[in-house]
């Protein structure tokens, strides 16, 4: 299953709720303000680093770049473009947007 999160972990609990419920092996895609969660030194960095052992975590590159964070992505997080976003949706049986 693909989980899509679009809010900064410092603003909302969407990522936290997603990490709480998602099953081992799930994919998590961070888009819009959620890409801050994938950057070095952010408040949720340790939380996300722990999560990397259970999930495949992706961040949307155009959203990182728009926010000036393109060069601060944590190791272990893969970046994708919109085409990659489409592929992730297609590759997984279903998806949930944690709005």
């Amino acid at each position: 299953m693909l989980h899509i999160v679009n809010k900064s972990p410092a603003e909302r609990n969407a990522l936290e709720s997603c990490l709480r419920v998602a099953q081992d092996g799930a994919a998590i895609l961070l888009i819009e303000d959620a890409v801050y969660a994938a950057t070095r030194g952010n408040t949720a960095e340790n939380h996300l680093r722990d999560a990397l052992s259970r999930f495949k975590i992706y961040a949307l590159a155009p959203d990182l770049e728009a926010r000036g964070m393109g060069d601060r992505v944590m190791a272990g997080v893969a970046t994708v473009d919109y085409g990659g976003f489409v592929d992730l949706v297609a590759e997984h049986k279903n998806c949930q947007s944690w709005l």
Binding site: Y82, G83, V86
Partner: peptide, 18 residues
């Protein structure tokens, strides 16, 4: 940003032949 993200998603999906 929702509508922008959705638009770019749709465009990418169409480009991939979906």
């Amino acid at each position: 940003q929702a509508s922008d993200s959705a638009y770019l998603f749709c465009r990418a999906a169409l480009e991939k032949g979906h």
